[in-house]
Computed example of a mutant assay.
Amino acid sequence: MAFSKAKQTERNFQVALCTAPDSDTAESLAEKMVKQKLAACVNIIPAITSVYEWQGDIEKEPEVLMVIKTDEELMGQLEELLEQEHPYEVFELISCNIDQAATAYLQWLNGAL
């Protein structure tokens, strides 16, 4: 199995993170992302706790985390989908470049998006 630098591909793949209030919401959003080809895959990690400041108060809330594999060029469309569908007034959407990955996985990502 080979490990490749992702920059050797023509695309700039991303791992994006987005929280949701519960698994049902995350699954619904993930299905829409994949169906619309905005994500190749979304992993849903249940039972996280988020601690943050909101309107002057420290909040502590249970959430689920979506780990979204996508392309940099799709981030704007992904944000638009979340603006329409996400229940939060301010939702999290952050991303990092995939600098290296298994060659076969990069090929799969390229074909899935």
Rank of each mutant, 00 (worst) to 15 (best):
A16Y: 08
E83Q: 15
T19C: 09
M1V: 13
I44Q: 04
K32T: 12
V51Q: 15
K5P: 00
F13R: 05
W108Q: 06
I48Q: 04
E27R: 15
E80T: 11
E83L: 13
Q14R: 15
K5I: 14
M66V: 05
G56F: 07
C96P: 01
P87N: 00
N43F: 14
A40D: 08
G56C: 05
T9M: 03
N97W: 01
W54Y: 09
A20L: 08
I98L: 04
S4C: 13
I45M: 15
G111Y: 03
D57Y: 04
Y105I: 00
L29T: 05
Q8G: 15
E27F: 09
L109H: 10
V64Q: 03
E63I: 04
P62D: 10
P21Q: 07
L38I: 04
E72N: 10
I94K: 06
I44E: 00
E31H: 14
S4M: 11
K35H: 12
S23G: 12
L17R: 14
C96F: 15
E72H: 10
E85W: 00
I94A: 10
T25V: 13
E27T: 13
D57C: 06
Y88M: 01
T103G: 05
R11P: 02
E73F: 03
G56R: 04
M1N: 12
A102S: 15
R11Y: 11
Y105C: 01
Q55D: 08
S23L: 14
A102P: 10
E92C: 07
T49N: 12
V64W: 00
P62M: 07
L82C: 03
K37N: 12
E92T: 02
L65E: 07
E89Q: 09
L82H: 10
K35A: 14
I98Q: 01
A101P: 03
T19I: 07
E92K: 01
P62G: 10
I45L: 15
F91D: 01
D22F: 04
E73D: 12
I44W: 01
T103C: 02
S95G: 07
P21E: 11
T19M: 11
E83R: 14
H86M: 04
T103F: 03
K69F: 04
F13S: 06
G111V: 02
P87Y: 01
K60V: 07
S50G: 05
H86K: 00
E80Y: 09
